[in-house]
Structures are given as C-alpha cells and as structure tokens.
C-alpha cells in the first residue's frame, strides 16, 4: 500500500475511535433519523396512493434514508471540519509530513460507518414498526448501492466545501441546519413530492437531495408507484446524471475552496 493509503487507514481508525468516544454526539447522530421516522411515521400513517397500498411511512423511509446520506456526510463534515480548524487539528496535521489526502480518507471512513449504521437502524425500525417489506429484486439493491455511493461522494465533497463558509466551529451548525431543512421540505422528504407547488419542485430539482430521494423511492416503494411521480417514472438515468454532475461540482468546489487554516490566518 502507498503511504497515503496506510496512513489513511490509520486516520480512519483514529477518527472512529474519537467519534465513538464522544457519547452525546454518537447518540444524537444515530437517534435523530430514528426519532423523525418514529414521529412522522406514526402521525402520517395513511395511504398516499389509493389502490397501490403505499403508506406515508414507506414514502418517508425512502426520504429518511436519502437524508441519512446528507446527515452522515454533508452535515457531519460541514460541522466537524470547522471545529477542527478551531481546535488546531488541521493546523497540526498541516505541519506534519502526513499526506493531505489521508485526512479526507479518515473522514470518509467515519461517513461510511455512520451511514451504514443509520440505514441499518432505519430499516430495522421500518420492518419492525411500520410493516415495511424490504426490496427483493437484485436491481433494487444495485440501485440502492449506486445512489448511496454517488450520494455519499457528492455530499462528502459538498460538506468539505461548505466547511469553509462558517467563521468558526461554533457557528457551523447554524449554517448547516437551515440548508438541510429547506432541502428536506422541498425535496420530498417531509412532504410527498408530487403534492408540492410546481415552482418548489423546480427549485428542488436543481439540488441533489430531490434526486437522491427519488432514487431511494425506486428502491423502497413498489414499482407501480412510479406512475405517481411527477414525471410518471423513477427517471433513474436523470438521477444518475444529476448525482454525477453534483459530484463533479463538489469535487471542483472542495479542491478550490478548502482551507487548512481559519480565515485570515494564512
């Protein structure tokens, strides 16, 4: 293995150790999606497509798994990196011969573990409490895999880029939370997407979350529900196209905007 990969692997281990030792943050990270699932799934339990047997709980589960992509990568990094810029983590690393890519590999490791944990808990909850049947077709799991992979890639890159916006670690969550909430409301997480005003649908279509939720619905909802989408189809090629496009945007932004030091320190 190259030094970058060996050290990257060591970064993954040390980052996970740190992550799991911060009890409160661990509890919050894993319980928030479940809590939302429990509340929304219980309040809005009715069918949303007569005759198709699709409940809002099922619809919401797909939305929450797509949100899990955002929570585990974008939200986590956009908050953690500014904090590490404040407490000297980044400055210390910058002063060592550690290959810089190893730092991001370490972050990616945490993102993957957190995402897998969140998905597992959500699915478990869906099956036990909300009568959700897991998809059986192989293509559905393949779709799940590529939507997850692209979603994590683009949200990780956007999270790294976004981390340069807050002035300090304390203001980071104030920057991140509204962005996520607005996109969740407009992208078909908290509301059924086809019921939203068309200008809102158009707005959400610019951003990746709408496409991530749509991809996840194609996995977790019956095939016939595709007719209920605004385009009367899952539009998987468009989903893939938008996610790749945003991954490229995220890559360019991350490479051009990332700062190892606080603004004004350089």
């Amino acid at each position: 293995m190259t030094p970058t990969l060996t050290i990257g692997w060591r970064r993954v281990q040390i980052e996970l150790k740190e992550f799991f030792r911060e009890r409160e943050s661990v509890v919050f990270t894993f319980s928030l999606p479940m809590l939302l699932m429990l509340i929304f799934g219980s309040v809005f339990s009715g069918e949303i497509a007569p005759g198709l047997g699709v409940t809002f709980s099922q619809y919401f589960l797909a939305g929450m798994i797509a949100s899990g992509l955002v929570y585990s990568s974008f939200q986590q990094l956009a908050i953690a990196i500014p904090v590490e810029r404040d407490d000297g983590t980044l400055k210390r690393i910058q002063g060592t011969p550690m290959p810089k890519a190893a730092y991001f590999l370490g972050k990616l490791g945490v993102v993957l573990v957190v995402y897998c944990g969140q998905v597992f808990l959500l699915l478990l909850m869906g099956v036990v409490l909300f009568d959700i049947t897991l998809p059986s077709a192989a293509w559905q799991w393949i779709t799940f895999a590529w939507v997850s992979a692209l979603g994590l890639a683009l949200c990780t890159l956007l999270g790294i880029s976004f981390s340069s916006l807050p002035r300090n670690g304390r203001s980071a969550s104030a920057w991140v939370t509204p962005v996520i909430l607005v996109l969740q409301f407009t992208s078909g997480v908290f509301f059924v997407f086809r019921d939203l005003p068309s200008w809102m649908q158009t707005f959400a279509s610019i951003f990746p979350l709408k496409w991530m939720t749509q991809g996840m619905r194609s996995v977790f909802l019956p095939g016939e529900f595709a007719s209920q989408e605004p385009a009367a189809s899952w539009e998987l090629p468009q989903v893939a196209g938008m996610l790749v496009l945003w991954t490229l945007v995220g890559l360019v932004l991350a490479l051009t905007t990332f700062r190892w030091q606080r603004r004004g320190d350089g």
């Binding site: 740190e18 030792r21 911060e22 590490e84 983590t89 400055k91 210390r92 002063g95 060592t96």
Partner: peptide, 27 residues
C-alpha cells in the same frame, strides 16, 4: 518539528494513542 501556541485537538484520545498515531506520519 512544530509546537504550536495553542491546541486542544485530539481531546478524546489518550496520550499514548496520540503520540503513537503521530509517529506513523514520519519516516
């Protein structure tokens, strides 16, 4: 080698873990 003015990083790791981790960065 650099000793910075202030740093509060690696708060959750113990002394042994931090020092042996950083050792891996050097030839």
């Amino acid at each position: 080698g650099i000793v910075l003015q202030t740093a509060t990083d690696n708060a959750e790791l113990n002394v042994h873990e931090v020092v042996s981790h950083f050792a891996h960065y050097y030839p």
